Simulated assay, not measured.
Amino acid sequence: MTQSCLGKIRSYYARFSDKEKKIANYILENPEQIIHCTINEVAEDLDVADATVFRFCKRIGFKGYQAMKIALASEIMTPIQQIHEEITERDSEKTVADKIFRSNIRSLENTLQVLDANSINKAVSILLNAERIEFYGTGGSSMIAMDAYHKFIRTGIKTFAFVDSHFQLMAASQLTSKDAAVVISHSGTNKDTIRILETANENGAKTIGITSFPKSPVSQKADVALITSAEETEYRSEALASRISQLSLIDALYVNIMIKNKEHANRSLEKVRNAISETRM
């Protein structure tokens, strides 16, 4: 699949340095012009070194400037137009709904672009071999952790999640090298979340971080980092928009575990179904 150059730039944008944002803005504003320019011409226009432009191309996942140009040319020549619209006070209710859905679709597409296959493989392996899985998240991320618990309890693997951050820290202190901790934080900088992750690491547990920032403490301290992406608008923070990607990522991990641990998972799922059906009688 051809890499989406513009999608990658938008998804990484909040994490760029000032120089990188300068290059990003130039590409986003002049995509047609870029495909006819040399790296020297772009660097001269922006008053930066050729090496700075080259490093930017590497930063967004391309081997170099030429590889980025090929991807960009392929992208802008397709009939599919990127929809990038801000919500305004003049919008009708239906228009607002349309833009929210399109924003969610973009978040999923951008996350798919930055999702690393090797990281997914490692995360699935950690979860599959864990005796116990605990999901952690504070604030809005605690709801993502509880959703993960609601799914993974069906796998047959011992699974736990707590909303209160103090309970989370106490639970993390009891983890062992046979356990796995999944830490969810959009920013990756929440102090409570970082302490929980550090405690899990200190106890030898395998750790997975789900965050939107590759260079954040959660991403750097976790054994495996899974990166999600979202765009911020005036009425909707990047953190809120990222949740749809986080939920989808949790879904992907859950289904992988169910497939790879099919017999055990099916027995567990049947127990859950029977228990629920009995409450409805």
Rank of each mutant, 00 (worst) to 15 (best):
I83F: 02
F16G: 10
I35F: 11
I35Q: 12
G7R: 08
A51M: 13
K21M: 05
A73W: 02
V42S: 11
C57N: 08
E41N: 12
I23N: 05
T78S: 14
E29A: 10
N104V: 00
R90T: 05
Y26N: 06
I76Y: 06
A51W: 04
G61P: 03
T95F: 00
G7V: 06
R90N: 08
A43R: 11
D18M: 02
D47K: 13
L28C: 04
P79I: 07
A73H: 10
E75Y: 07
L72R: 02
I34P: 02
E29D: 15
Q66Y: 08
S17Y: 05
A24S: 13
M77P: 00
T78V: 01
E32K: 15
E85V: 04
C37I: 04
A49D: 15
D47M: 08
D47V: 09
A71F: 03
R10T: 03
R59H: 08
R90A: 08
K22V: 00
M77V: 00
R55K: 09
Y12H: 15
Q81D: 06
I39N: 14
I34G: 05
T38D: 14
Y12A: 05
F16Q: 07
I39D: 11
V42D: 11
A67G: 10
E20M: 07
K22D: 01
D45W: 03
E75P: 05
F101K: 12
T95E: 15
S17W: 02
K94R: 14
K94V: 12
E29V: 00
T78I: 01
E20I: 01
N30H: 15
G61F: 04
R59D: 01
C57K: 02
I100V: 15
Y13V: 06
R10N: 13
K94G: 01
A49T: 14
A67M: 03
E32Q: 13
K94Q: 14
E75C: 06
E93S: 12
D98S: 10
R15F: 04
R59E: 09
H84V: 00
K22Q: 11
E89Q: 10
F16Y: 12
A73C: 04
I9W: 09
M68I: 03
I60M: 03
D18E: 13
T38N: 14
L28D: 07
I27V: 13
E93D: 12
Y13I: 03
E89F: 04
R10E: 13
E29K: 05
N25A: 01
I27H: 06
F101V: 07
N104P: 00
D50W: 00
D91V: 03
T78F: 06
V48P: 09
Y26H: 10
Y26K: 01
G64H: 08
R15M: 12
T38K: 14
D45G: 01
V48F: 08
